[in-house]
Design a binder for these strands. Structure first.
Length: 638
RNA sequence: GCCCUUGUAGCUCAGCGGUAGAGCACUCCCUUGGUAAGGGAGAGGUCUCGGGUUCAAGUCCCGACGAGGGCACCA
């Protein structure tokens, strides 16, 4: 005789066990039609599962987050249903939901082609239209094994092996197709409407590169066709912002076969890069850092001592000279320890903050390379802080301030923070791990920041904080980090003399705010969609005359702007003004200065903003004060 | 590194067994035009590279390299 409490507080008595669907029916046929799953005392169940005890029940529909997730999950099964009809020999592995959609990993003798994909999609549509009921059956482990042995599904059997004896196993019957799942699933395919299969790619079984590679079919699904359309539009929008595409359009940089994963920066791209580098350089100097420069190629023995050789030798570029082997540096830190080690340090010298915009090379796997985002040659806004254990928290604290200040300069206001703690394989005593993890957490808490704990995700040498920013279309990019390192200073024999005259090993903090400049430029290109704030714009202002009679006057203004340090461009081509305006608008130049006879006579200029606004006929002086104030804003959102 | 897709003019792309195409860009000429494309002419390609099949290969097959999408990796 269960008593069911609904979300609005109302209660309903039932004489017998009752399913979510029956409760929904008792409320109204509309709700029954919309019901996708039940949430009973916080647990999601299928609409047909009987509820035996007094419970709170929330009837899940496509409007709920759980509803759309259930729909996506059922779509994954539907892939299975369609694939097994079209390719009976296919073996189904796993079909989970992911952000915005779902996938299914499948083993099949032939690779699925785009034609196969659309065939599968069409078959799914046909199956949906038959509005069949999805039936669930709770079975014993033995019965599940029998079912999938009979159906020759080795991956399902392997999954079952890892299910405990007493755990419930549910089989979902999609007509003749059977899948195994925790559920819940939609009661009928009538709930499966707005979807699209997106792509097929490879994926390792159980995510392990030693295992067989399966074929993964990705799909997206939404509760309405409108949402599906909006999602596809969002993808289009992201594609339009692709930094590789904009980089080409704006001639910022290029790559070529002869140096995969390394960037040829063109004048305009390098201008952006340099604004970033000079900006960070200025900030570091103001915050007690000293800039250094260390060698590009360093003898293998140093990397052996630092421990990198053993772990990363395959990912390092090497070169030889006079029978010595060198590694092109993949990171700056061991060299920074060498600088620290010159001259015995006192506790009075600490903290010592050494910064370097050092070019690093890592031979990343070819499949990992991606435009500016993942490269083989990069420069970080890298620095290492050598300090005593007691100084960790204050150093971390001021670093956090720096990170927030810098991100704000680019208009990034939404910052996500993660704290990663000791992994199973690690160096250093429990005591020092306790201390450093606490120092990091305390530094965050003292600022009342929200952060996520990632237990066991720290580096083997120490815990770390990672800072991610959200760009204007909601994508998250991990950029900043501060990592405590108790290992390297010891391995490379860094030392200082403490208050008691004893030799001690300093703690080393690895830290970066932007991460790699290459990647950060890429992020900015996508964030701004190429429409950089004046501060960063590779060309800030372009000058053009109405006719070539105005060329000398144009050049005069141009020279004044260049002398002031602005990035200006002169366009004296024999083209009509409309044509030039179009081109420079497409090049996303913030200001276009146009002068004709009138302006020349008046000793004035006419300014057009990127959005098409006419800023009127003004003097060069007032334009300079305008651009000055724009630059001073940096990229901050006002 | 692995799976799939892909590589034609500076760019974007068409051609998919029978002597290389378009638009834009480029060069030259005309045009000197006031806020998102003025007109004309011309030049430009060992069709990524190396093999193979064929009377004949951008076109089909194999391999290498690069790129794209995933997976794995990311000190």
């Amino acid at each position: 005789m269960p008593l069911i409490t609904l979300p609005d507080g109302s209660k309903k008595h039932f004489h017998n066990d009752v399913s979510t669907m029956e409760v929904a029916n008792s409320i109204g046929p509309g709700l029954a039609k919309a019901a996708i799953a039940g949430c009973v005392n916080g647990n999601l169940i299928d609409t047909c599962i009987p509820i035996k005890n007094d419970s709170s029940l929330n009837i899940i529909t496509a409007k709920d987050k759980e509803g759309i997730e259930t729909i996506r999950h059922s779509f994954a099964h539907l892939i299975g249903h369609a694939v097994k009809q079209l390719y009976p020999q296919a073996k189904m592995a796993i079909g989970p939901i992911i952000e915005d959609g779902f996938y299914y990993d499948i083993s099949y003798k032939k690779p699925f082609t785009p034609d196969d994909l659309s065939a599968i999609e069409s078959r799914m549509e046909e199956l949906i239209r038959s509005n069949y009921d999805v039936k669930v059956k709770v079975v014993s482990k033995e019965e599940a094994i029998n079912t999938f042995t009979e159906r020759e599904e080795p991956y399902k059997l392997e999954i079952i092996k890892n299910i405990g004896e007493n755990e419930e196993i549910k089989l979902y019957y999609h007509q003749e197709y059977v899948d195994m799942c925790r559920g819940p699933h939609v009661p009928n395919t009538i709930h499966l409407r707005s979807f699209k299969l997106m792509k097929v790619s490879g994926a390792y079984w159980k995510g392990d590169s030693n295992n067989e590679m399966l074929q993964r079919i990705y799909g997206t699904a939404w509760s309405t066709s409108k949402e599906l359309k909006e999602y596809l539009q969002r993808l289009d929008e992201a594609e339009k912002r692709d930094h590789r595409k904009i980089g080409k359009q704006m001639t910022l940089f290029h790559t070529q076969e002869e140096s995969p994963g390394m960037i040829f920066w063109h004048p305009k791209g390098w201008a952006i890069y340099q604004v970033l580098e000079q900006y960070i350089r200025g900030i570091l100097i103001l915050n007690g850092y000293e800039e250094i420069r260390t060698p590009q190629a360093v003898d293998r023995t140093l990397w052996e001592r630092s421990g990198h050789w053993e772990k990363f030798k395959d990912e390092m570029f090497t070169t030889t000279s006079e029978s010595r082997e060198y590694a092109i540096k993949p990171m700056n830190c061991p060299c920074h320890v060498q600088v620290f080690n010159q001259g015995l340090k006192s506790y009075r010298d600490l903290p010592i903050r050494l910064a370097e915009f050092g070019s690093c090379h890592r031979n990343e796997p070819s499949g990992a390379l991606h435009g500016l985002m993942r490269v083989r040659n990069f420069v970080q806004d890298d620095a290492h802080i050598f300090c005593g254990e007691s100084q960790i928290q204050s150093e971390v604290s001021s670093f956090i301030d720096l990170v927030f200040m810098v991100y704000k300069s680019f208009g990034f206001d939404s910052i996500l923070i993660k704290l990663s703690t000791r992994p199973t394989k690690r160096v250093g005593s429990e005591e020092i791990w306790d201390k450093s993890e606490k120092a990091l957490a305390d530094a965050l808490d003292a600022k009342k920041l929200k952060w996520e704990l990632l237990p066991g995700e720290g580096a083997f040498y120490g815990p770390k904080i990672e800072f991610s920013l959200k760009d204007c279309i909601g994508r998250v990019w991990q950029c900043g980090t501060i990592q405590v390192d108790f290992s390297m200073p010891e391995r490379l024999e860094a030392a200082y003399i403490d208050e008691g005259g004893k030799r001690r090993t300093p703690v080393m903090l690895h830290r970066a705010i932007l991460g790699s400049f290459e990647r950060f430029v890429g992020i900015l290109i996508e964030h701004y969609a190429g429409r950089f704030p004046v501060w960063l714009a590779p060309i800030q202002v372009v000058l053009m005359g109405i006719t070539d009679k105005n060329a000398d006057y144009c050049e005069e203004i141009y020279n004044k702007l260049i002398k002031k340090g602005y990035r200006a461009e002169l366009d004296l081509r024999n083209e009509k003004i409309g044509f030039k305006i179009r081109e420079h608008t497409l090049q996303k130049i913030p200001f276009q200065i146009i002068v004709g006879d009138k302006e020349q006579d008046n000793k004035s200029i006419r300014v057009r903003a990127l959005n098409g606004d006419d800023l009127g006929e003004i003097t060069l002086e007032s334009f300079i004060s305008l651009i000055e104030s724009e630059v001073a804003k940096l990229g901050r959102v006002q």
